[in-house]
Design a protein around this nucleic acid. Structure first.
Lengths: 107, 107
DNA sequence: AGGTTAGATAACCAAGTGGTTAGGTACGAG
DNA sequence: CTCGTACCTAACCACTTGGTTATCTAACCT
């Protein structure tokens, strides 16, 4: 799978997006991350592995803890990708687009 | 599934992203959309249904054709969501963030 | 009416996903 | 050394996904 696909796939799950949101407040242990959800530890572990493979988190080792940290780099690609479609949702861009087309047709 | 999740899920497939890219050039029939790929018609039909359920395309009826059209509205939500993480990938925002934290710690 | 074309649906398959429970590893504390 | 804690892996399950082929409907063109 390409980078963008695995990033989108990782973001398709609400639990994983919530984990990312939590990590904006700073690094956290697996235990801390699992607290807001009533799913088992292994389920969280799987989510973290998906996020790690997508490059959205990095994991360290400190004694018996494996602290997770946000890495938002892939989200930049997402933002850039989405921005390419801005003119299709933004009305003012659509008007500008129409204007440019009109001008192009004049020559 | 919530809106954002189904949008991300729809975008996780390269074929579907290519279909969206093609639709930026204007509406197209199912046949036209399937031409660049060497997968079967039904496979394309399934992709289109996923895109339609995610609200990324709308479909009309003209004789025996069912022309597809881009609807980028959900992509705005994607862009907005991703922008919330800008300060975590943008160095200058990170510096601003550090500065603000420093200032906060001073009182 | 008959044939061709566009497209959807149905049934199936292999692989992936999100969850579980059970059991294993590694570390710190007493 | 033993106990508890943090975390992982393994095996399993139900469901989804991305693909297939075969079959159907609907519209156009002779």
């Amino acid at each position: 799978m390409d980078q963008l696909s695995s990033t989108f796939a990782a973001l398709a799950d609400p639990t994983r997006r919530a984990i990312l949101a939590r990590l904006t407040e700073g690094p956290a242990t697996v235990k801390e991350l699992s607290e807001p959800f009533d799913i088992s530890g292994p389920a969280i572990s799987k989510h973290l592995r998906v996020l790690e493979k997508a490059g959205l988190i990095t994991r360290g080792r400190e004694a018996q803890w494996r602290p997770c940290q946000l890495d938002a780099t892939p989200l930049k690609e997402v933002a850039v990708w989405a921005e390419n479609y801005r003119r299709f949702w933004d009305a003012s861009y659509a008007r500008l687009d129409a204007l440019l087309t009109e001008m192009k047709e004049m020559d």
